[in-house]
């Protein structure tokens, strides 16, 4: 079984130290959640794991199955088995999902002759309009369609570990359930999931095995699924220093602004 290990990761963005020693391990087949208030560094963690430029790793290591991820470019990390479901997937005009996945699979030497059929089946399984497969990536898609599109790509590329950033944004309750069921199926087949969210309800759908709270650039506490339930009731107040209050995080405002 695969394993992603983040150890003492420190990351600067634009000269500011955002993460200062994040450690967590995501074994295959498990769902780990990183929760925390806005501005805690959750998206910095996912971007740093994927090696996005502008996210400067100043300390610590990221390894997957013993392989040093920090030594690899983004596309090599993806080819090694990392996948990143973005909070707001980028629009790529004129490039279809089919073209992109064909390029990705052929670069890995695993070009599939029936990719079109696979895509159609995956799309149908999670309620994504098959006609959208031919369209430009993420262009003119609703928030929910974008998340479905990301899920289809994840299913086709079959990664070892997926980082899923705010999966719920744009999905309605039914949509979230459908997508979560697809993720669960992948998890049963051995996929490790690192889900990034500030929204505890998502974890009911994804059945998180472990919950980590990220605040002030560090994991401040970890626990089982009961920690998410606790956060749902109490918010992040206990983990946030007084000088940086985030009154809206995890509160009702978020529920109704979706």
């Amino acid at each position: 079984m695969s394993e992603l290990i983040v150890d003492q990761l420190a990351v600067k963005v634009g000269g500011s130290q955002i993460l200062s020693g994040v450690s967590l391990t995501v074994p295959g087949g498990e769902v780990h959640a990183v929760m925390g208030p806005n501005g805690a560094g959750k998206s910095t963690l996912s971007n740093a794991i994927m090696g996005r430029s502008g996210y400067e790793v100043t300390g610590g290591t990221i390894t997957m199955d013993g392989q040093d991820m920090l030594a690899l470019d983004t596309f090599e990390r993806a080819q090694a088995g990392l996948f990143y479901v973005m909070q707001a997937p980028t629009e790529v005009p004129g490039v279809s999902m089919f073209d992109m996945l064909t390029a990705s699979l052929s670069a890995q030497g695993t070009a599939s002759t029936d990719l079109a059929a696979t895509l159609s089946a995956e799309a149908a399984a999670i309620g994504f309009d098959v006609a959208l497969l031919e369209r430009s990536l993420n262009v003119d898609l609703s928030g929910g369609e974008k998340k479905r599109s990301e899920t289809i790509q994840m299913s086709v590329l079959a990664p070892k570990v997926a980082i899923i950033d705010e999966l719920d944004s744009g999905l309605d309750v039914d949509g979230l359930r459908t997508v979560a069921q697809r993720v669960e199926k992948l998890t049963n087949d051995g996929l490790g999931v690192l889900v990034i969210t500030h929204f505890p309800r998502l974890l009911h759908e994804l059945n998180a095995d472990r919950v980590h709270v990220l605040a002030q650039g560090k994991i401040v506490t970890s626990g089982g699924p009961e920690l998410a339930i606790e956060l749902e009731q109490t918010g992040y107040g206990a983990y946030v220093e007084e000088e940086t209050p985030e009154p809206k995080s995890g509160g009702l405002d978020d529920l109704f602004s979706m």
Partner: peptide, 16 residues
């Protein structure tokens, strides 16, 4: 970055 994060090598990504 989006294409790279899907495993598309840089030169191929630029081409697409």
């Amino acid at each position: 970055f989006y294409l790279h994060s899907r495993g598309v090598p840089p030169a191929v990504a630029d081409r697409l």
